[in-house]
Simulated scan of single mutants.
Amino acid sequence: MGICDGRVVIVTGAGRGLGREHALAFAAAGAKVVVNDLGAGLDGADTGEHPAEQVVQEIIDAGGEAVVNGADVADWEQAAGLVAQAVDTFGHLDTIVNNAGFLRDKMLVSMSEQDWDNVTRVHLKGHFAVLNYAANYWRSESKAGRPRAARVVNTTSGAGLFGSVGQGNYATAKAGIALLTIQAAAEMGGYGINVNAIAPAARTRMTTSAGDAMASAMAAPADGSFDAMHPGNVSPLVVWLGSDAAADVTGRVFEAEGGKVTVCDGWQRAAGADKGERWSPEELTEVIPGLLSESPAPVPVYGAR
């Protein structure tokens, strides 16, 4: 009996990297898994590969249950089909893990409209489309007197929480996912839906393609010691958030790296001043520096000098 025994879980972008590890970990914890992957390359281009099939075979060989799904999660109709496949194949749906995404890194001044649209589409719209259809299913179940302990685990990023030079499209989409998590948790709790997010740090195609310094930091240790950057280190938190055990946790964001789990708070009100009437620009010249001096300094943007 695993922590997710009998639960039905969708993991998007589950053919490689973090998603693959999540799918395998859910199956090991007793879940039935829909392994979604479009087979796209790092930049979203079609590769003709089918990595989801390999993951499903691994799960089946280990005695678990899984099926392949090749939907584009940001396509509205295909997202609907993904949720329907889970319900039609296994009888119900309990957890979705939104993980799918790719990169097209450029400085903002060099970024094309297509670079912006493609990345924000797969990350932000892809999260929302699957969430929307899953939430509608769970709402219907709740209204029919069959409420489920529904769980959503979204994937934001340190880039989305703090910014990352050269990744403006990706960072913006990931920031939107963090807020989407908070918004969805507030709106969907009445239907038994808990929504949380992770900001993982791990060795994946995305991180190892981000330059020599990043690749070096993400490399596996040569001496066989604990591999802090192995993507499988993130999956236990994802499985826990996707289980019954996380019943009292919703609307939160967690950083996960190696053996470390950290709760991240988003925008918080810091120092303030209230005049009780309209300020003049000249008055604010005196006020704003004082407020900033009394407020916490922001976390530095990744890659900023």
Rank of each mutant, 00 (worst) to 15 (best):
R269N: 12
R148D: 00
A173D: 07
L161H: 09
A175F: 06
L292Y: 11
A245E: 14
V67F: 07
R148W: 08
G166E: 04
L161F: 10
N154Y: 11
G290A: 14
R205T: 13
S295N: 04
K106C: 13
T156R: 03
A270I: 01
Q85V: 06
A40T: 13
V68N: 09
R151K: 14
T155Q: 06
S293K: 13
R121D: 14
F90V: 04
V234H: 03
I177K: 07
N169L: 09
A184S: 15
W138P: 08
R16H: 00
A219E: 14
T208R: 12
V263S: 13
D223T: 10
V130Y: 09
H22I: 01
A25Y: 00
M229D: 10
N99G: 09
T208A: 00
R104A: 09
A273Y: 15
P200T: 02
N36Q: 03
R139E: 14
G266I: 08
S216C: 02
M206Q: 15
L180N: 08
P296C: 04
A25D: 10
P296T: 10
S140E: 12
G166T: 02
M107C: 09
D43C: 04
I193Q: 08
L131K: 08
A178Q: 09
H92V: 08
F254E: 05
G242R: 01
H230E: 11
I96R: 01
S280T: 15
G276M: 06
A62T: 09
A178N: 08
P200R: 00
H22R: 00
L24M: 12
P296W: 11
T172I: 05
A84L: 08
A129I: 03
I96F: 12
W76L: 12
G30V: 04
D248Q: 15
A171T: 04
V109C: 15
A28Y: 02
A173W: 06
A201R: 13
A173V: 07
G163M: 02
I288D: 01
T47C: 09
N118D: 15
W267H: 10
V68L: 11
T12F: 11
G17T: 10
T181W: 05
A245R: 13
I193Y: 05
V249G: 03
A256I: 14
E113V: 14
V73T: 14
T156Q: 10
E77C: 10
D115E: 13
S164N: 15
L103V: 15
V130L: 08
L24N: 12
V238H: 05
G189K: 06
G168W: 02
A80I: 00
V165E: 01
G145D: 06
G64S: 06
V301A: 05
V73K: 06
A220M: 04
G145M: 03
E257Y: 13
N136M: 06
G70N: 13
R305Q: 11
I182C: 05
E255N: 11
L237M: 14
E255A: 11
A134N: 07
R16M: 01
N118T: 03
V153W: 00
L180Y: 14
V56Q: 05
T47L: 07
K174H: 09
A159W: 01
D105P: 03
A144F: 00
D117E: 15
A159G: 14
G91V: 10
P281K: 01
A245L: 13
D244I: 10
I193S: 11
F162W: 12
M1N: 11
Q114L: 13
Q54C: 00
